[in-house]
Design a protein around this nucleic acid. Structure first.
Length: 1116
RNA sequence: AGUCCCGUAGCUCAGCUGGUUAGAGCACUACACUGAUAAUGUAGGGGUCGGCAGUUCAAAUCUGCCCGGGACUACCA
C-alpha cells in the first residue's frame, strides 16, 4: 500500500485496456458529465457516421479531434454532453442492399415489395454498429452511445417534417424543374453520387455535327449581309438528337467572331458562316485563305476569306431559322403554354460558359437537355422543347424520327442511330458543315451500362438563395479552423449559392411530407404526426361531403412507420373534394444530418429546454469534404429556421493519406486498418502521433513508423521519468505528506522547471482555446523531452538517490511530482489513457487530488508568479555554456569524468554575469569543472566582433545598408572600443559620413586568444585544459567509482545494499585512494575500503588504462 | 474550369507581422557516457526553402504567373 507502481516495460495497448475497463466500471465518462451538472455547457454536435461501412483510420483522426476538445473543456469545468448519432438513410444503404439481394431498382415494387426492401435497408444500415462501437471504446472516444439519435426513427423524421413545414410556411419550399442526369434505360434520375461510381464515365465515339443555322436577314443582322449569299451560324454538338429541340444559340460576349466566305463542303453551295475567330484554324486550312473562290464536291481545297470580325455582344438577339422544323416543334413550351418557336427562341443569347476550346464558339442550346442550356432559357425567357420522352425515344410529330430511340436502349440489332440519320439529313439539306466521329468521355448509367441523358425532372427545392446574404453575414461570426476554409471554400460556395434540390426518387429515406392534388392546384405540407392525424380526420368529413369512399381507420394504421410504402398509402381529401396523394420523393439525406440540432432532441415535440440549452453548438469537427455537405446544411437550416449560426467553432480536418501521400483505398491495398493499428501501437500513441504530426487541416501522411517514434520519444521518455520518480520515491517513502515547500526555498533548478511548467500550462491552454492542438502537443513533448528529462532529471539525479531525506530531497520530489501530475492533465485530452494511468499512479499514493480520474480533475491553474523569464533565460545560458564546454572537451578528447580547473567566459555586461553566476553551480557540476572565471573587457584579452543590427539600421540607412553592414563587420578592436566608449562612431559610407549608434550594432566576443574557444550566437566559452596531478587523482577516483558502480550493478546488488571493498596496492592508484577514500566509500555505499598488498581471486578493472585488482562484496 | 489547401534536409515537420550563417526530430556516420540504460550526450555529412518574375537596401517570408500533389464544386456544347 501507498507505494507508487513501478513498471518493467511500457506496454501501451494493455495499459489502455486496463484503463478502459476502469472507465467502464467506475462510469468515469458518465461522471465527467454528471459532476459538471449546473456548470456552463459546452455544446458539441456529433456528425453522424453511417454504420453500413467499416470505420477507417481517418475516423480515428476525426474523432480524436472531437474527443480532445470535449475532454479539454470538461477539464476546464464545462459540462460537455455528447450525444452520438447514426446516419441511416440514403443511397449507399440502398446500393448495398441491392447488391446483397442481387436486384436492381426496377425490381423494387416488383420482385420485392417496397416494404420488404425498406425492412432490408433497416437491417443493413447498422450492420457494422458493433465494429464502430468497438472502435469508439478502443480509441478512447467518449460519446454517449447509449442514447444515440438515429435518423430513421419516427421521432427524428417527425422533426424533419416540422422543419420542412417551417420552410414551407415561410415560402422557402417550392417545386421546380431542373435538368438532371437521367437514365432512360432504367427510367430513373441519377444522383451525382451515382455518376461518380467508378467506370461511369466512359470514352465513347459519337457522331458529331457542326450544323448551319441560317440567319434571318433583318435590321439587327443586316451588317452580316452584303450579297445574296446566305449567312449561317456554325454550332457544334456531340448529341445531334438534341438538335430538333434547339431553342437558341449561345455566344460569348467578349469572344471575337468572324464572318467567313466559303462553300458548304458537302453541297458546294456558296455560303458565309460565322464562328469564333480563334477556331477558324480548326475548320479551314490556312493554305487556302483568300484562294480563288471556286469549289467542287469531293475537292479538298476549300477556299475561304474573312469578311469581317466582331464581338459576340454584337450578335445578341440575331434571329435564325429553325434548323429541323417538325410538327411537334412549331410551338415551344413556355410557362405552361405553347408559343410559336420564333416568339420564344430562334435567337442568339450571351452566356459566360462559352469557350473557344472546342466546337465553334457558338453553342447549340436545348434547354431540356443541358443545365447550362436550361439556365440560359430561364435567364432570357426562352421556351423549351422536349422532343424525347422518358423512355428515351422521340415523341410523335418529329417526322421520320418519331418513335426512334435516341440511343440503343433496347439492344436492337438493327438499331439505326438518329444521330447519324439527322446528320445525313442535314448534309443533304445544306445544313451540315462538318460531320465527324468524335471520342469523348460520357456518363453512363452504372446499372444498365447505357448512356445517360440530361433530362428535365420535377423536384422540390429549398430556396436557400433567399437567405444568401444572411448566410454570408452569419458565416463571418463562425470561427473556422483553418480560416481559409470558411472565407474561401465555404464563403465562395455561399456567394455562388444555388437552391437546394431536396428531391430524391428513392425508397429508403425521409419521405417528403407533401400531399398534392393531381392537377397540382392544392398542396398540403404536414409538420407533425398530430397534424397528419387531423388531416385524416378532416379528410373523412370532406369525403363524406363529396361522397368519396375514405376509410380513416385503415389509413391511420399506416402511421406506425413514417417510411414508404406506408406513408404512400395515406391519401387525403381536401375541402374542395380533391384527392391529395403524397409526392413520392424522398428528402436528400443531407437534410437529415443538417437538421440534427433539432431532430436529435425530437424538438419541438419534446425537450424544448434541452434544445434551448444546446443550440447553437460551440464546437463541431468533421473532414474538409463536409464543407459543402454537413457544414452547409447545418448552416443553411439554422439560418432559415432561426436566423442563427448552427455552430460557433468548426474544425475541418484534412485527409489521412498513406505514407507516400496517396489516397487510401481498398483497391490499392494501401488502407490502414484502425483495429490492428490500435492493437499494436495503442490508441494514445496513435492519437498523439496524429495530433502532433501535422495540423488537423493539413493532410496527414500516415506512417506507422511515426507512431513508433512517438512511442519511443514521448511516451518512452515520460514513462522513464515516472519510473525514475517511482523507484526513488518508494525508497524514501515520499508520499507527499509534507507541507509544500515554498518555491523560494527550493533550489534554482526547481524554480526553473516550475517556471517552465507554468509557461507550458499557459501555452497549452491558449493553444487549445484557439483550437490549435498540434502546437499544444508539440510544446508538451518538448517540455518532457528537452527540459524535464534531459535537463531537470539528469541534473537532479543525485538529489534523489543520495543521502538523507532532507528538505532539498523533498523539494526535488515535490517538484518532479508536480511536473508529472501537471503533464498528466495537459496531455489528457490528446492521450487519455496514459494520462489517466499516470495521474492515478501518482494520486493513489499522494491523494492530493480529489478526483478519481484525470478526466474529472480540474485543469491546472497558471501561477503567473512562478513564471520567471529571467530564470528561464539563465537556464538557457547554462545549457548553452554546458553544451559548449562539452563540445570543447570532445574536441581535445578529455572525458567528462576528468575534472578540470576552470572555464572562462567573456562578459560584456553586468546583467549577463549575474545571470551566469546564478547558475554557476549547475554548469560546474554538469561539465565537471571547478571554477568559472569572468573576463571583462578591461583586461583586454577578448577579441570582439561587431555586427550590424539589420532591422534598426536598415530602416535608417535604406540603400546604404549593405555597404554599412560590410564596414561594420570588419571593425577593428580600436573602432569597437571607440564605439563602446562614445556610444557612437562615424563611418564613411560612399563618401558620406554616417553616425552609427551603439544600439544599432551588436558586439560579441569572438575569441580569447591562446585558449580553446567555442561560440554559440553571442556566447563565448574558453576551457582550461591543464590537468594537474590533483585533478588526475580526482579523475581516477571518479573513474574507479564508475567501475565499482558497474560491478555493483552486474553483481545484482540492490541500490541500497552496503558493500565491503578491498583493493590491491598499485602505484597508480595509491595516492588517489589515499586522498579520495571518503568520496569513494560514500559513492558506492561502502563501510570501509581496504588497501592490501596482494589480492587473489580478485576482479580486474581498467581505470584510465591501468588494471586494478578489486574484490567487492555485499556486506552481511 | 473554378475555389481552397499543401510543396523547406533522404523522411516528418518548425520558421513565414520581411532582417544577419534557414532550424528540430527521425534516419545515417563517428565518438563518448552508463544505478533513467531497448535511455542519453557530442560531433559530422545532408538544403537552387517547387520554378520564374516583381516589390524592397534586404524575400523561405509579400505580390503575380507557372509547375507538382490533394480536396471540393461544376461542366464537358
Amino acid at each position: 500500500m501507498n507505494a507508487y507502481n513501478e513498471y518493467k516495460s511500457l506496454d501501451l495497448p494493455s495499459l489502455e485496456n486496463e484503463v478502459g475497463k476502469f472507465w467502464v466500471q467506475e462510469k468515469i465518462f458518465e461522471k465527467s458529465i454528471s459532476t459538471r451538472e449546473g456548470k456552463t455547457p459546452f455544446v458539441f454536435y456529433e456528425g453522424p457516421p453511417s454504420a453500413n461501412g467499416m470505420p477507417g483510420i481517418h475516423h480515428v483522426m476525426g474523432r480524436a479531434i472531437k474527443d480532445l476538445f470535449c475532454r479539454y473543456k470538461t477539464q476546464r469545468g464545462f459540462q460537455v454532453n455528447r450525444k452520438s448519432g447514426w446516419d441511416t438513410h440514403g443511397l449507399p444503404v440502398e446500393l448495398s442492399v441491392e447488391k446483397n439481394l442481387g436486384i436492381t431498382k426496377e425490381d423494387i415494387g416488383k420482385k420485392i415489395s417496397i416494404e420488404e426492401y425498406n425492412a432490408e435497408c433497416r437491417r443493413e444500415v447498422l450492420k457494422y454498429q458493433d465494429a464502430w462501437e468497438k472502435l469508439t471504446h478502443k480509441m478512447g472516444y467518449w460519446v454517449d452511445l447509449k442514447n444515440p439519435y438515429i435518423t430513421y426513427e419516427n421521432n427524428y423524421i417527425e422533426t424533419l417534417w416540422w422543419a420542412l413545414k417551417q420552410l414551407f410556411d415561410k415560402g422557402l419550399l417550392y417545386e421546380g424543374y431542373t435538368i438532371q442526369p437521367y437514365s432512360p434505360a432504367a427510367g430513373t434520375g441519377l444522383s451525382t453520387h451515382e455518376l461518380n461510381q467508378p467506370g461511369c464515365y466512359r470514352l465513347v465515339k459519337d457522331t458529331t455535327v457542326v450544323a448551319q443555322f441560317k440567319i434571318v436577314n433583318d435590321e439587327k443582322s443586316k451588317f452580316l449581309f452584303n450579297d445574296a449569299v446566305p449567312v449561317f451560324f456554325l454550332a457544334w454538338t456531340t448529341t445531334p438528337w438534341t438538335l430538333p429541340s434547339n431553342i437558341a444559340l449561345t455566344v460569348g460576349g467578349e469572344i471575337e467572331y468572324s464572318l467567313v466566305q466559303t462553300f458548304n463542303p458537302y453541297t458546294a453551295i456558296p455560303i458565309n458562316v460565322i464562328l469564333a475567330k480563334a477556331l477558324i484554324g480548326k475548320y479551314f486550312d490556312s493554305n487556302f485563305e483568300n484562294a480563288e473562290m471556286n469549289f467542287e464536291v469531293g475537292k479538298k481545297e476549300l477556299p475561304w476569306k474573312i469578311i469581317s470580325t466582331f464581338n459576340g455582344k454584337d450578335l445578341e438577339g440575331i434571329r435564325y431559322e429553325q434548323l429541323l422544323p417538325f410538327d411537334s416543334n412549331k410551338n415551344v413550351d413556355l410557362n405552361d403554354s405553347q408559343i410559336p418557336f420564333a416568339d420564344a427562341g430562334g435567337k442568339v443569347v450571351l452566356g459566360d460558359f462559352v469557350t473557344t476550346e472546342d466546337g465553334t464558339g457558338i453553342v447549340h442550346t436545348a434547354p431540356s437537355f443541358g443545365s447550362d442550356d436550361f439556365r440560359m432559357a430561364k435567364k432570357y425567357g426562352l421556351g423549351s422543347l422536349t422532343l424525347v420522352d422518358k423512355q428515351g425515344k422521340f415523341i410523335d410529330g418529329v417526322g421520320e424520327f418519331s418513335g426512334m430511340y435516341v440511343k440503343n436502349y433496347k439492344d436492337d440489332a438493327k438499331y439505326e442511330s438518329p444521330d447519324v440519320l439527322i446528320c445525313i439529313k442535314l448534309k443533304k439539306e445544306n445544313k451540315a458543315f462538318k460531320v465527324e466521329k468524335y471520342e469523348h468521355n460520357y456518363p453512363h448509367c452504372w446499372r444498365t451500362d447505357k448512356p445517360v441523358i440530361y433530362y428535365p425532372l420535377d423536384s422540390w427545392f429549398v430556396k436557400t438563395t433567399a437567405a444568401k446574404e444572411r448566410m454570408m453575414q452569419l458565416n463571418n461570426i463562425i470561427n473556422w479552423k483553418p480560416e481559409s476554409t470558411g472565407t474561401g471554400r465555404f464563403g465562395n460556395w455561399l456567394e455562388n449559392l444555388q437552391d437546394w434540390n431536396l428531391s430524391r426518387s428513392r425508397f429508403w429515406g425521409t419521405p417528403l411530407p407533401l400531399w398534392k392534388s393531381e392537377d397540382d392546384s392544392e398542396v398540403v405540407c404536414i409538420g407533425s404526426i398530430e397534424e397528419l392525424k387531423a388531416q385524416i380526420k378532416s379528410s373523412t368529413e370532406n369525403a363524406k361531403q363529396f361522397n368519396i369512399e375514405y376509410d380513416a381507420q385503415s389509413i391511420s394504421e399506416n402511421l406506425k412507420d413514417l417510411h414508404r410504402p406506408f406513408i404512400d398509402r395515406i391519401f387525403l381529401i381536401s375541402k374542395s373534394g380533391k384527392k391529395l396523394s403524397r409526392t413520392p420523393d424522398l428528402v436528400d439525406v443531407w437534410f437529415d444530418s443538417g437538421a440534427m440540432p433539432y431532430a436529435q432532441w425530437h424538438f419541438p415535440f419534446e425537450n424544448k429546454d434541452l434544445f434551448a440549452k444546446n443550440f447553437p453548438a460551440d464546437f463541431i469537427a468533421e473532414g474538409v469534404d463536409q464543407t459543402r455537405g454537413w457544414f452547409f446544411t447545418l448552416h443553411a437550416l439554422a439560418t432559415l429556421l432561426y436566423d442563427s449560426v448552427a455552430y460557433k467553432n468548426v474544425v475541418s480536418n484534412g485527409l489521412v493519406l498513406d505514407k507516400n501521400g496517396n489516397k487510401m483505398s481498398k483497391r490499392l491495398g494501401n488502407s490502414v486498418d484502425p483495429f490492428t493499428t490500435l492493437d499494436k501501437y495503442g490508441a494514445d500513441a496513435t492519437r498523439w502521433y496524429m495530433i502532433s504530426n501535422s495540423q488537423p487541416w493539413d493532410n496527414l501522411k500516415f506512417d506507422l513508423a511515426g507512431i513508433d517514434e512517438v512511442k519511443r520519444k514521448f511516451f518512452g521518455t515520460l514513462y522513464n521519468t515516472y519510473n525514475f520518480f517511482a523507484v526513488y520515491a518508494n525508497i524514501d517513502k515520499f508520499i507527499y505528506k509534507e507541507d509544500e515547500i515554498s518555491l523560494e526555498k527550493r533550489p534554482e533548478i526547481d524554480q526553473w522547471i516550475i517556471s517552465l511548467l507554468n509557461s507550458l500550462v499557459k501555452t497549452v491552454q491558449e493553444d487549445f482555446d484557439k483550437y490549435e492542438p498540434t502546437h499544444a502537443a508539440r510544446t508538451i513533448q518538448e517540455f518532457v523531452d528537452e527540459h524535464l528529462s534531459n535537463w531537470y532529471v539528469r541534473l537532479c539525479r543525485r538529489r534523489f538517490w543520495k543521502g538523507e531525506y532532507t528538505e532539498d530531497k523533498i523539494a526535488a520530489y515535490q517538484t518532479l511530482y508536480t511536473c508529472l501530475l501537471t503533464i498528466s492533465k495537459l496531455m489528457a485530452p490528446v492521450s487519455p489513457f496514459f494520462a489517466d494511468k499516470l495521474f492515478r499512479d501518482l494520486n493513489l499514493v499522494s491523494e492530493k487530488e480529489n478526483s478519481e480520474s484525470v478526466h474529472l480533475s480540474q485543469w491546472p491553474e497558471v501561477n503567473e508568479n512562478a513564471i520567471d523569464k529571467s530564470l528561464e533565460e539563465r537556464m538557457q545560458i547554462a545549457q548553452d555554456i554546458s553544451s559548449l564546454v562539452l563540445s570543447l572537451r570532445k574536441k581535445v578528447n578529455i572525458k567528462v569524468r576528468q575534472p578540470l580547473n576552470k572555464i572562462m567566459i567573456p562578459v560584456l555586461n553586468e546583467y549577463f554575469q549575474l545571470q551566469v553566476e546564478a547558475v554557476k553551480d549547475l554548469i560546474l557540476s554538469e561539465v565537471n569543472v571547478k571554477e568559472i572565471e569572468f573576463i571583462t573587457e578591461t583586461e583586454g584579452v577578448i577579441k570582439k566582433k561587431a555586427k550590424a543590427n539589420f532591422k534598426l539600421l536598415g530602416q535608417k540607412l535604406g540603400k546604404k545598408m549593405k555597404v554599412a553592414a560590410d564596414v561594420i563587420a570588419v571593425f577593428n578592436q580600436n573602432q569597437i572600443a571607440e564605439l563602446e566608449k562614445n556610444h557612437s562612431i562615424q563611418i564613411n559610407l560612399e563618401n558620406e559620413l554616417v553616425e552609427i549608434l551603439m544600439a544599432e550594432v551588436e558586439i560579441i566576443s569572438e575569441d580569447i586568444p591562446g585558449w580553446q574557444v567555442a561560440n554559440k550566437n553571442e556566447l563565448t566559452v574558453a576551457l582550461d585544459i591543464t590537468i594537474t596531478d590533483e585533478l588526475q587523482e580526482e579523475g581516477n577516483a571518479r573513474e574507479l567509482v564508475n567501475k565499482l558502480q558497474k560491478m555493483r550493478k552486474d553483481g545484482g546488488f540492490n541500490i541500497t545494499d552496503q558493500v565491503e571493498l578491498t583493493i590491491e596496492k598499485q602505484d597508480f592508484i595509491n595516492a588517489t585512494i589515499l586522498h579520495f577514500k571518503n568520496y569513494i566509500c560514500a559513492e558506492i555505499l561502502a563501510d570501509d575500503l581496504q588497501l592490501v598488498e596482494q589480492l587473489s581471486d580478485a576482479e580486474v578493472v581498467e581505470v584510465n588504462d591501468f588494471p586494478i585488482k578489486i574484490i567487492l562484496k555485499q556486506k552481511k
